[in-house]
Amino acid sequence: MGLPELLFIGALTLGCVFARLNSRQPSGYTPHRIVGGADVPPGEHVPYQVSLQYKARAGQMHFCGGSIVAPNRILTAAHCCQGLNVSRMSVVAGIRGLNERGSRSQVLTYTIHPKYQELVTSDLAVLSIDPALKLNNVSITSIEYQSKKKEFVGGGVPVTLTGWGLRLPVPFPFLDEVNYPNVLQRMSYHTISNTECKNAGMESVTDTEICARGPFRGACSGDSGGPLVMQTENGPRQVGIVSYGLVVCGLYISPDVYTRVSTFSEWIGSQLES
Rank of each mutant, 00 (worst) to 15 (best):
R186S: 06
K148F: 11
K148W: 07
E196F: 01
I143N: 02
I140C: 06
I143C: 03
V183M: 10
L184S: 10
V153D: 08
L166Y: 05
N199R: 06
L168W: 06
K150F: 02
S188N: 13
N179F: 13
Q146N: 08
P169F: 05
T162N: 12
K149S: 11
E151L: 10
K149N: 14
K150M: 01
L133S: 12
A200F: 08
L166A: 12
L135Q: 02
K148S: 15
T141G: 13
G156F: 12
I192G: 00
L175N: 13
L166I: 04
H190V: 13
S142M: 12
F174D: 15
S193C: 13
Y180N: 12
E151Q: 14
S147V: 02
P181V: 05
A132L: 04
S193W: 00
V170I: 15
Y145T: 04
F152N: 11
N182K: 14
S147T: 07
T162K: 01
G165W: 03
V183W: 02
Y145A: 03
N136D: 11
T160M: 04
I140K: 01
Y180D: 13
T195Q: 15
S188I: 00
S193Q: 00
G154V: 01
I143F: 05
M187F: 03
T162E: 10
N199P: 09
V153C: 10
